[in-house]
Design a protein around this nucleic acid. Structure first.
Lengths: 146, 146
DNA sequence: TTGTTTGCAAAGCATTTGCAGAGCA
DNA sequence: TGCTCTGCAAATGCTTTGCAAACAA
């Protein structure tokens, strides 16, 4: 996760202004590092301290932060996009989505790098990003099967 | 891809009726095996021969076929769901999505099985499905970079 | 015949956009 | 000050739903 100062620098570099709304949205992600917040989630959290903020502003800010690669826009297939801080290094993690409790777990892994190399060699496709989701049952839900 | 007779049997087994609309939608997928059709795509194709069909019927039929695991509902992140025949065997393929021409290529691969075993061992999460998307540039678009 | 299925139109949701006023630099 | 940003409301695009008529079995 980038430092707050670093984020501000990156915004300024693209001539984006540092507004209170943008600050508080960034802070929301810093305060919820382990979560995968949707625009609506962010809106609900931010409204507590800034009741006048508009949902459209949240969407616009998330767009900018994703464009600057500060946030990553992810899609768990539940009909809304979610956002998390980009990993600075190449260290990828995958998402394990429980089909029962719907919680999302993370799993650190680098194995996909070798697969990307294989694909590039065999098909000539140049990969710049990937998204891997696993669906199944978390250990708790396996115990409490009905 | 399941035989048409087999599909009808599976529909009947769940007390779904074999209607002309359902038949023609299934046929559309049989005629477009290599494509990833959206509901709107199917609707446009089917309207040629059955102009009276409704888009809602297409959606309802796709839901049923996905529920019966005849079709697989996939999400390329372009704001609409797409459908393709389920693979009968475990033979998985991944999707390579070109960020320039937006075409979707397929890549056959089984390597994820070993990754699933590792995850299960390390985290206790029991995986029943996965979805892997690679984003990048196809060989053609790499040549014609502007 | 009878419960499903269909087509239509309206509703639902997440997200985007237009616009006039507010505010950062 | 000048141009970006914001909040609001309306619009958008995909998908779902309610309902009465049509239809498969």
């Amino acid at each position: 996760m980038p430092y707050l100062e670093e984020i501000k620098t990156r915004l300024k570099a693209k001539d984006y202004k540092i507004t209170p709304q943008r600050k508080v949205i960034i802070k929301t992600f810093a305060d919820n590092m382990e979560k995968h917040l949707s625009a609506e989630d962010v809106y609900q959290i931010v409204k507590d301290t800034n009741p006048e903020i508009g949902l459209a502003t949240v969407y616009r800010t998330l767009d900018i932060l994703a464009e600057l690669q500060i946030l990553k826009k992810i899609d768990f297939g539940d009909g809304r996009y979610r956002y998390e801080f980009c990993n600075e290094d190449d260290h990828h993690h995958h998402h394990l989505i429980c089909l029962k409790c719907e919680r999302v777990f993370e799993f650190e892994d680098d194995l996909l790098e070798s697969l990307e190399a294989i694909i590039n060699k065999k098909s000539g496709f140049k990969i710049v990003d990937h998204q891997l989701k696993f669906y199944g049952y978390c250990s708790e839900c396996q115990k409490s099967k009905e």
